[in-house]
Write a protein that binds this DNA or RNA. Structure first.
Length: 488
RNA sequence: GCGGGUGUAGCUCAGUGGUAGAGCGCCACGUUGCCAACGUGGCUGUCGUGGGUUCGAGCCCCAUCACCCGCUCCA
């Protein structure tokens, strides 16, 4: 167990899973039919939570990213590409070949091992005195079988090989294939980024750990295109920005770890990669939430080769400023000079898992504490301490009791607030019970209408984390909420 | 993929071959005066699924699916 794992409460996951089911955050997919391994459905509150996460990402990364390394405005645009693409896309990206490993199984009693066919020689057979799988006389090695992690499907009515296609295993390639379209249509020029949120699919051999490794998942990806000379600067920028985004939204920095990949771990084309990892309760080691990768010119170069299309960027701005007096009508000299302003952009790829971050937010938010009951005795409380921006329900509007016009006044406030936010009206049961209900789904604020409200048009605002209350004029409730929910 | 464990109400679980239960929750009515109050009434089950054994199966057997733990895997 590493430093991060010390003194970790051994089990919160079962309680969290149970709460997620009970309160409608996450359900097993096709549950009434016994479920299906590796797939999960998000319930009413989970849908709100994940949507808030995606919206926060879009707002903070695409609509209003912070200034760049030199204080400049960052240019970002969005994209929503198809899940099914021409299969050649996956040939070019390497997924069609590199994404599948031929595996062999050993049927021998006491072994039952599974090995990569190309690594048999370097593997140790579990049965002594054998050295590597297949060498022991009892080894019963099966034929090599391909385990392609891409889901295959068919396009059109006829189910033949020519019609076969794959569900995308990542959203990134849709960005690369549209690089030229975006440049030609959107008046962007490097450095700039294209962002996309969408589903991706991987036929994982062994889904595990609740929603963490799912076969269908949602990615929030940016491909940031820049000049090769500036790529490391941008890599640092995105690495730092992405890390700070998680802490800004309430993840404790002690549970986050930026892990720089070593040279051996890096893909052959990658110059640098940092995994941003979170210490989930189900693991001793932090697990990946996001990878920020410096992919060099690999992807665009691959698509240039496979498609035959020129995806280089020509820097017209610099060319216009270039002193052309030495060229003067010499076509050949001009072409040579121009070549210096033509390049394949390098790519920085911050690739985050929306579902993984949703799970991290749920784990991080789950807490148990004690609140005094009406007699002053401390009672156990379960509270989801979501950041207000991410909370599925922003506020509850509660009449203290159901008489003397309190419900009517509360309903009026409710109708005003729901024009802007997901808020709830609740008049069921005692006030303490209603507070606890909201605590358990992480509602940051409760506005309570009491007898005094009827006299002077004030309400109490009750804060989720400490239960403290203040009075404020009803006319200031919306402004107060807006302030608490603003980005940044 | 291998080994082990688990599967009963929305949740947590009891139920060792003979009439499916408890707590919490949820709903209705009454009550209510700031932190899981109370009273009355009510709701909820293909006992994961499919076979088998048996006069009779939630319970025994087989298969299968799902979840958990440990390996394996994680481009």
């Amino acid at each position: 167990m590493n430093e991060l794992g010390k003194d970790r409460p051994s089990m919160d996951m079962e309680k969290l899973v149970s709460l997620c089911k009970r309160r409608g955050f996450i359900f097993q997919a096709s549950e009434i039919y016994g479920g299906i391994n590796g797939f999960w459905d998000y319930g009413p509150l989970g849908t709100e939570l994940k949507k808030n996460i995606k919206d926060a990402w879009w707002q903070d990364m695409v609509r209003n990213p912070p200034p760049g390394p030199d204080g400049e405005e960052i240019s970002m645009v969005g994209l929503d590409s198809a899940i099914i693409q021409n299969p050649k896309v996956w040939q070019a990206s390497g997924h069609a070949t590199g994404f599948q490993d031929p595996m062999v199984d050993c049927k021998t009693e006491g072994c039952k091992g599974r090995f990569r066919a190309d690594q048999i020689a370097s593997n140790q057979c579990p049965l002594k005195p054998s050295k590597c799988p297949g060498e022991f006389e009892k080894c019963q090695i099966t034929e090599a079988r391909a385990f392609n992690l891409m889901f295959e499907t068919y396009v059109g009515a006829v189910k033949d090989d020519a019609a076969s296609a794959w569900l995308r295993p990542e959203t990134a390639q849709g960005i690369f294939t549209n690089f030229k379209n975006v440049v030609d249509s959107s008046r962007v020029r490097p450095p700039f980024g294209i962002a996309q949120i969408g589903k991706a699919f991987r036929n994982e051999i062994n889904p595990r750990n609740y929603t963490f490794r799912s076969r269908e998942f949602e990615q929030m990806e940016i491909e940031f295109f820049c000049h090769p000379d500036e790529s490391m600067k941008w890599y640092q920028y995105w690495r730092n920005l992405r890390l700070s985004w998680y802490t800004k939204l309430g993840i404790q920095s002690e549970k986050l770890r930026p892990r720089e990949q070593g040279e051996k771990e890096l893909a052959h084309y990658s110059k640098a990669c940092t995994d941003i990892e979170y210490l989930f309760p189900f693991s001793d080691e932090p697990q990946e939430l996001e990878g920020v990768a410096h992919r060099g010119a690999f992807d665009l170069t691959q698509h240039m080769q496979h498609s035959g299309k020129d995806l280089q960027y020509f820097d017209e701005e610099s060319w216009a400023k270039f002193d052309k007096t030495g060229i003067k009508g010499d076509k050949k000299a001009e072409a040579e000079a121009k070549a210096k302003f033509r390049y394949v952009p390098h790519v920085i790829e911050p690739s985050a898992g929306a579902g993984r971050f949703t799970l991290a937010v749920l784990c991080e938010a789950y807490s148990e504490d004690k609140m005094p009951d009406e007699k002053g005795n401390l009672q156990e409380r379960v509270v989801m301490k979501f950041h207000p921006r991410l909370a599925p329900i922003k506020a509850a509007i509660l009449p203290l009791v159901n008489k003397e016009g309190m419900p009517e006044l509360a309903a009026r406030l409710y109708r005003e607030l729901k024009e802007e936010w997901n808020v709830r009206f609740d008049d069921g049961g005692a006030i303490g019970r209603r507070y606890r209900r909201q605590d358990e789904v992480g509602t940051p604020f409760c506005f309570t209408i009491d007898g005094q409200s009827l006299q002077d048009q004030t309400v109490t605002i009750r804060h989720r984390d400490d239960g403290k209350q203040e009075r404020l004029p009803m006319s200031q409730v919306a402004a107060t909420l807006r302030q608490a929910l603003r980005p940044g």
